[in-house]
Each structure stands twice: as C-alpha cells, then as structure tokens.
Design a protein around this nucleic acid. Structure first.
Lengths: 201, 201
DNA sequence: AGATTAAGCACACGATCGTACGCTATGCAA
DNA sequence: TTGCATAGCGTACGATCGTGTGCTTAATCT
C-alpha cells in the first residue's frame, strides 16, 4: 500500500506509533524502544515511522508527553471537583495509587519507569521529565499548604518531606506488583500515604 | 601488551570489568552497558572483555551479584551487632538510607536502578534480582516480627505493608537527589520510615 | 482537470551491537 | 627446561541501530 496524504490519517499514524512506543517502553524502558521494532509492531517501514518525528529523540519526547497527559487526565482531572486542601489531596492519592496499579500500559506505570531511567542522565528527555514531575509536585504542595492553613494538618508539617513520601510510595507500586507479585500494592501505598500525611487511619 | 596467564591477574581484570559495568549501569541502566564501551573504559579489547564471561548475560548477572554483595556489606553487616527487633530495624533503616544517598556509584543506587529496569522483564537477571531483594525483605520481616513479639510495635502491625513502605522510601532517594536536586532526600526517607513503622518522632 | 503537497515505502549508509575464531605470549607444572 | 593451559589481542561475521535520499501515490487546492 502506498502513502496517504491525508493529514488526519497521518495524525492517527503518529498516535499509533507513540502508543506503541509507550507500551514497549513500559516493559523494557524508553531506550529499548527502537525504530525497527516500532515499525514491526505498527506494520510500517522504518522510514515511515521515523518520518513522522524526524528524529528518535522527538519520538521519545512525544512519548513522555503522552505519559504525562495521560497521568493528568486519569489522576488530576479526576479530583478537580474536590475542595482544595486535605480532601482533594486524599482523593488525589486514591486516584494516584489506583492509576499506578492499572495504568493501561503492559509494563506498569511509564512515568515511574522513565523517572528511574532518566533521573541521572542529561538531555531533553531528562528536562521534560523534570518539568512534568514538578507540575505534579506543585499541585501536591498547594493542597498540602491549604490543608495546613485550614488546620486540617499540623502547623509544623514538613511539606517537602511529605511530597517525597507520597512520590516514593506511588513509585513502588509497579515493582511490587511486577517483581514480588504483590496484588495489594496500591492499598499498601495508599495506607502508607495516610501515615505520611498524618491523617488518622 | 600480550596476555598474562596468571589466574590472579585474570581475577583482577574480571573485577575491574564488573566494577566498570556497575558504574556505567548506575547512570544509564544495565542494558546500556555494552561490551564495546566497557572495553574502552578498562582499556582492553572487546574480545578480552567478553572472554572473561563468555556471554553478556553472565556479565550482567555478575554485576547484579556485585551490587547485592555491596549492599549486604554496607548495610546488613553494619547492623549485625544490634539487638534483633526494633533496634536493629531502625539501625538498618539508618544505614540503608545513608547507603542510598551515597552508594559509591556515580548514577546512584544500582540496586534500585536494576529493580525498576527489570521488574517487568523475564530472564535470569529478573530472577537474580528477585532473589536478592527477597533476602533483604526476609531480614526486614524478621526484625519486624521480633519487634511486634517484644511489644515494641503494636500487635496489629501490617508487616507486609511496612516492608512495602520502607522499600518505597529507600528507592526514591536516588531520583529525588538526581532529578530534583534534593540533598536531604536520605533524611526525608528516614523520617518517613519512622512514620511507616509507627515509632514516635 | 491540473498542480501541489505530503505520507509512506524501498533502499542504502556508516556505526555499533554480541559473539566466534585463531593467534601470540605468558605463567605454571612436569 | 620443556610443554601446556590460558589471558588477552586482532579480526571478522551477521544483525540491528538511527538517519538520509528519492520515488510512488493519494489527498487537497486553484
């Protein structure tokens, strides 16, 4: 079959490639994602795949973007309606752990995967990863601050350390599930989050 | 220079290759470690490098072994003398977080890196990783059980969830440090561990 | 209808991957 | 001292990597 010049069809192709990249990356890591393997998966030629993005790094960046927009949709959008502060924070933790347990990628939460893959490297992927995570951290900080101001959390709450704890617990859900076969990892994470935040069980 | 048939020299070579592999893997991940790059680092030929291990997977397995034996030495051996139960558990958490903050590898704690890299894959590396982590988990469980029996922790302590929490917090030290530049990550992890365990601050 | 734009393919490139083979030179045992 | 085992080198192999160049073909615009 030959080329279709429809811009809409091209967009669909683009999406299917990025989706395949995300699936593959969740299992084997972002840099195991290879143009050749992607071409095989989406049944296209190598040049057809790379042609959409010009360079492999652009494809990686778009994959990371997909991951974060996915995360925002499934977690952030889901708790927008809750009142700011402790209620929204707890709802976010609930949605967050649930997302991590079933992120829709075969190899688990890709955001976590990319985080541990690119935390120590330089480059554009590292930067975009940092930007995406910082957005989420800022959201957490905001609700924590509001919760303290509202008197729902003690005055001396160490906000940065709580954020650290929440991110830790969410991040370990995937390895606990995949490596140790822990089917209740999400529950454990949520339980731990409540302890870290300091709300009664 | 030509070959030296000394078995001791060969062992030294072997160690230097594995050490280089561990250093490189801590930054870029275990499967970015390539025979050619290793050869360049240790100033040997490719065939000289691979000849020690016959296959790349064998080299990877030996690297994972080095990581765990390193961890045991720095963390487990350091707290052996403490009395079993809560005292030894807290000492272990202290040594653990300290180790994660300064593991001696340029890219952070390699045990964590490998965990997130191979949790979702099949193969020998996955198995060895699981075995190593399970040993450590068993140690944690033992001290937790002892602590409960001694009355240092409440009867209804959910041991599995506590283990999950401790592993989570320790694992996030590296990304917090490398990605977010958090220089106090180890302290936050230790503080979180105390909350997860349920000891007063 | 004809011109233009772009999607996707076939193919080729230089580089690097893991591995195998044969050779040289060394240390150790007989 | 002679023979043997082996550490490490040089070289080569088939595969695959990311990327670039034309070409074909279809959709869009005048």
């Amino acid at each position: 079959m030959a080329g279709r010049a429809s811009a809409q069809a091209a967009l669909e192709t683009r999406r299917s490639v990025v989706k395949a990249a995300a699936d593959l990356a969740s299992v084997e890591g972002l840099d195991s994602v290879t143009i050749g393997r992607l071409a095989e998966i989406v049944q296209m030629s190598k040049s057809g795949v790379i042609g959409q993005f010009r360079t492999k790094e652009a494809l990686q960046l778009e994959t990371v973007e997909l991951v974060f927009s996915d995360f925002r949709t499934r977690v952030w959008e889901a708790v927008k309606r809750f009142p700011r502060g402790l209620p929204r924070l707890l709802a976010a933790c609930d949605a967050w752990t649930e997302y991590a347990a079933d992120p829709g990628y075969p190899g688990g939460c890709l955001m976590t995967q990319v985080t541990y893959d690119y935390d120590g490297r330089d480059g554009a992927v590292h930067e975009k990863l940092l930007e995406g995570r910082n957005q989420w951290r800022e959201t957490l900080r905001a609700d924590l601050t509001t919760a303290v101001e509202a008197g729902d959390l003690p005055e001396d709450t160490d906000i940065e350390s709580v954020v650290f704890g929440l991110e830790s617990l969410a991040s370990f859900i995937t390895p606990a599930r995949l490596l140790h076969g822990d089917t209740r990892a999400a529950d454990r994470a949520f339980q731990g989050m409540r302890r870290i935040i300091g709300v009664p069980e």
